[in-house]
Design a binder for these strands. Sequence first.
DNA 1: CTGGTGATAGATACCGCTATGTACCGGACA
DNA 2: TGTCCGGTACATAGCGGTATCTATCACCAG
Lengths: 332, 332
Amino acid sequence: MPSIRDVAAAAGVSYQTVSRVLNDSPRVRPDTRAAVRAAIETLGFHPNRAARALGLGRAPGITVVTSNTMLYGYASTLQGIEEAARTEGMAVGVRVVESDSPAEIKQTVDYVNDPSAGGLVVIAFDPAGTAVLEALPADIPAIAATEPVAPDTGRVTIALDERGAAADATEHLLALGHRTVHHVAIPSEGRSSGRQAGWRDALSRAGAEIPEVVASGWDIRAAYLAGQRLAGDPDVTAVLCGNDDIAQGVRRALYDAGRDVPGDVSIVGFDDIPGSAFWIPALTTVRMDFVGLGRACFLAAVAELTGQPRPETELTPPRLIVRESTAPPRHG
Amino acid sequence: MPSIRDVAAAAGVSYQTVSRVLNDSPRVRPDTRAAVRAAIETLGFHPNRAARALGLGRAPGITVVTSNTMLYGYASTLQGIEEAARTEGMAVGVRVVESDSPAEIKQTVDYVNDPSAGGLVVIAFDPAGTAVLEALPADIPAIAATEPVAPDTGRVTIALDERGAAADATEHLLALGHRTVHHVAIPSEGRSSGRQAGWRDALSRAGAEIPEVVASGWDIRAAYLAGQRLAGDPDVTAVLCGNDDIAQGVRRALYDAGRDVPGDVSIVGFDDIPGSAFWIPALTTVRMDFVGLGRACFLAAVAELTGQPRPETELTPPRLIVRESTAPPRHG
DNA sequence: CTGGTGATAGATACCGCTATGTACCGGACA
DNA sequence: TGTCCGGTACATAGCGGTATCTATCACCAG
């Protein structure tokens, strides 16, 4: 592997000049710059990222801290970050923190508290991510992708505003004639999280009864169990699910209990995972632009890392997609 | 951030001795070692990964090259790698290569051809991954997670043997009384790939007609289109789908054409994605241990990186899970 | 003609660690 | 008692860059 000294020799300059060219310093004469560029090209030189990180004090890359890489919201956010990083030629690392146990938080913080981790994007949709955020030393550049109402950690925070869309979904159900809407929550969901708050907003605006929230795990099996409880209650005619996986478990539980969707019960999901349009019935759900969220976080993290002002980015807001899983209740 | 010199000063030794302790060199007296360890602990010292990579010549981490991070097989493999890396305290990076266009392959190779990328695991389920493998300089340590019959690149290759399970799935359908089994292929699938080869194996063993393979894209919409073609053909009574997403598209197309599953048509998927057990009908599919594959690749990559002999790892073989989407043909 | 000035580019120091050569110690041996 | 030796720790020399100080040169004004 050629180093900048090889390039310098080939171009007939000192290696510091090569460094200047690499970093777009203005203090290089155009013809010198061209000569160096040519030498770089012919030698196939690429700067060593480790050396660069050492010299710079911090790596010009991003590491993503997340509690999960498979769930749709997390994975899509990661994808958005990766895409944005790749177009900038930046490295991206991944570190998952499965729980908010003190030991694991400490390990994670130790891991990312290393100059070669570069800038951080913490996907803080849940307690594990939030705990990392809180435990992070203040001097390490980090951006949080969060729930809209995440606890204030003094960090730059970017969130998708799902509250309005959750209210829209609930109102859609109410408008169809349902007396109220039940809610099955995902584990990351706090009482005042966007999804739950929007649901409450709509219900109280309509003067509808606010049923107790049914908690579920991430696992579809857990959602199935939650669905069974709901299926047993004939008053349940509309369910807003914390995400599309939950909706899938609930829907199957309803089916097994002999309750038709949307004939007997309407269901709405959250996220718009790729398959939801192909379900039978196709799922009414809220489309979330996680990829855009990831992109925005990346941009903000780079700004944080380089000390530039935070860029303004537009996020496309969550939006209700009405499909086949919602209908008027049977007894109007 | 304390450096090894700080630790050395605190422990009353030279910093080289601290380095020895960090690298478990035997040439350190036990009490010296203990003193250094204590100093490390009290100072909260953590070695700088960038400096380490520079000194070592190669970073002690893994970067995963993949064409996708969202599709189940890819994402699960990545998850397996990440989990294994994390238990070893190793860094993992991600680099996606979307296509096998020469420009993109070159960019990707340049990116990973850097000491700080560490060891490589290339997820080579498709042409993009395979192209990277072929373009990779021989001296860079890499392991390939592949289709069983990937072209020989002279690299260590680890694969899940899906051929047998694909044959099992096909035989299951044949045993139910279907005259033959149609196949909808995913883009990564070559004519001689495990899934397709197993399907052919079973069909020819049974002396059944081998229908033309129906190609689909990764997108469920593409699978829906493929499904529409199949739905129009009354001779189609059993379909082996390249993966569960394909199965979802095909199933919906069948539904829209008024053909019942499994009454009129039986379908089998591949992968056993989390939701498939909750579909209506629950999907008969082949369970793949991608996480195990990822773990094995990680272990092999570390061995490659450190020059140790390649560890023997057992992969749990793909296995058919029979659920509700398969049944005897109506006029069985 | 001389000193000042801006534009370039070279020289030096350093980032934090690994690897290897060298010096020192005490004990075993002749 | 002198010598050799294994065991241990220190000294030195990089790894490949960045940052900054300094030197050189051409050009201009006084």
